[in-house]
Design a protein around this nucleic acid. Structure first.
Lengths: 362, 362
DNA sequence: CTGTTAGCGCTTTCAT
DNA sequence: ATGAAAGCGCTAACAG
């Protein structure tokens, strides 16, 4: 047939008895007027030959890749869901999403992925706040690459146009209130230093929450990376003394879960003696015993906003609906940061005999 | 400076005062002899301009993409780890991996991803056994695309050259034995119909295990999709009658975990009354209370084999070490299927007062 | 409505 | 050791 394996646009043109320009036109469904008959002929030829356009040639010619890159720390839990949703969102605008996992923030792998993305000439980038180094970012953005960060704090305004962040601070404050309302007389935050910005947001919100709702309670901020699981629990217990019940708000569900296991092992009653609140609303927090109160992350909304903003920044038109959604949120952004509320899922781990559960259930 | 944004090889050539062919040569570190001075000049120019080669042009010219595609049902747990590891493996051979999640086996999304992969002219494909339809597969493989399946059963030999599968059947048989050795007098398998091939492998191994090790015990195969979690437990309990303890082997850890929660809620003692074995060795199975016995999946080995075979099929040379690894395993493949052993992680959920834990711990 | 043609940025003979 | 030139497959003016 032809030289290489797959048929090209030339083969199709020949088969259909038209020029390659015409083939290109019908393939791309351009707005140029074409004879119905011609369209049919071309489509027939395409099917007969099993023609499939070569994206590399297309993009080279168009000087656009219609590809967006996403860099996340790993594929698990929230990030995996985020990637999946974002892919769907950008697809609506005709873009494809290339997802890269930094394999646990390995900087070398991160650089490699970033480099590849750039060599691919992606039209835009979205990155988790921790996945990219300041250096890489500055260089890239300086080169004019549209970029939006999610869950990133402390980025200089000249580098990042917009960060779409989950409001961990607010959620943390709510966690304190929830503990307080459910009778906790001592409250601690068990954080992860390596959670970096996300951890700091929680600390900030926790502190504010204590001020606002539970100033008189015993409270503390503990570092699990330093104390270990058991050590953290020991310390919390020691601090609380007779001031029970003790509320422990953790960096994430995984941590809450581990603490719960230790409680079980030591016959510490949850929620009677210790109440637990996690973060992420992982499946196991719902299915554990007792089920753990947690915060649900509105991935749907977050990815919608990220996609909308990025697409717009690239210079594409948004549909009416998306435009409005974006505007509505952009209106209340402060300082290049868009905050998205988390939803508390109250569950038995914070139940109180005298009070029914409040907030969203599951 | 130049017309569009990014500098091209032409700009570099101009800057270095050489021809583009020369630039191409030094960039690709070809074996052709070049003057040291020339190399230096070119590299300087590259750095000065911040040149970054355009992959689309490169690939178009080479008529190869050096890109491999991976299709998985979703990014969670095992699959996410698989993707991450495979990416590293193929990178050693100079290939890049594009990962696509079929978003829970949505066939429309699957087709879209597949189509894109083909339009990108990937050099090879690896797919989860369930992620691709027979139709797509036949068409693609017929077109000469190298493909390797992992965890797929029942693929006709004309379509799939090799399937690299985890030996769920063997593991399931071991689970039965483990239950039996730890005193279970009734044993059930709680499966998921929608687990398809993977579920059938488990059923097959479970049945064989009963024959081999526990013929006299009460046993049954239950379908959780039909009975629900509670229903499954009820049924298992009813069947077992006075024949305690009851061993429940589940399709995966998530399921075991849910059953455990119900046991807690009903004050059924684990492992005294009910013993549990899961599959996947998820983090929460290790951290739950009691920790759940499970099977660890050797993702490292599996991805190594998948990568090695695929790369070889593409026609690339393997290094000595990889070649040997592949040969060693290929030697004991039967019928286009390569089986990989899982490792049991015995934990308290199957503990027996009279017997210490056996097998690998954690 | 359809065809001609000039690129897109890079690789790869083949000369020199 | 280096360069000229012919593509790779497709898009997008621009003519007709």
């Amino acid at each position: 047939m032809s030289k290489s394996k797959q048929p090209t646009i030339i083969d199709v043109a020949k088969e259909a008895g038209v020029s390659i320009a015409t083939v290109s036109n019908v393939i791309n469904r351009r707005k140029v007027p074409m004879a119905k008959e011609t369209i049919r002929k071309v489509e027939d030829a395409v099917n007969r030959l099993g023609y499939r356009r070569n994206v590399m040639a297309t993009n080279l010619s168009r000087r656009r890749s219609y590809e967006l890159g996403l860099i996340i720390p790993h594929f698990g839990g929230y990030y995996g869901r985020f990637a999946e949703m974002l892919e769907q969102k950008v697809h609506r605008f005709g873009y494809h999403l290339s997802v890269f996992s930094a394999a646990g923030m390995n900087p070398e792998i991160e650089r490699r992925h970033l480099e590849l993305l750039l060599q691919r000439r992606v039209d835009g980038l979205v990155s988790h706040g921790l996945a990219m180094s300041m250096d890489s970012t500055r260089q890239i953005v300086g080169g004019g690459m549209p970029l939006v960060i999610f869950n990133g704090w402390g980025w200089p305004g000249d580098m990042v146009k917009l960060a779409v962040n989950l409001d961990f601070a607010k959620a943390s404050s709510e966690a304190v209130r929830h503990f307080h309302e459910n009778g906790c007389r001592s409250i601690v935050y068990a954080g992860r230093r390596k959670g970096l910005g996300a951890n700091e947001q929680r600390i900030q919100g926790f502190t504010a929450g204590i001020q606002d709702y539970a100033r008189e309670s015993i409270h503390a901020i503990l570092d699990v990376d330093e104390l270990g699981i058991e050590g953290t629990l020991d310390e919390a217990l020691k601090l609380s003394g007779e001031q029970k019940p003790l509320g422990i708000y953790t960096f994430n569900d995984a941590l809450a879960f581990e603490i719960l296991a230790v409680c079980h092992a030591r016959s510490i009653r949850v929620p009677e003696d210790v109440k637990l609140i996690g973060m992420d609303n992982e499946l196991f927090s719902k299915a554990s015993f007792p089920a753990i109160t947690s915060f649900d992350m509105p991935v749907e909304l977050q990815t919608s906003l990220v996609a909308a903003f990025l697409i717009k920044q690239i210079g594409e038109e948004l549909d009416e609906e998306t435009e409005q959604l974006l505007d509505a949120h952009l209106a209340r952004k402060k300082d290049r940061e868009l905050l998205i509320d988390l939803t508390m899922m109250a569950r038995p781990s914070t139940a109180n005999a005298e009070r029914p559960l409040r907030s969203a259930q599951s």
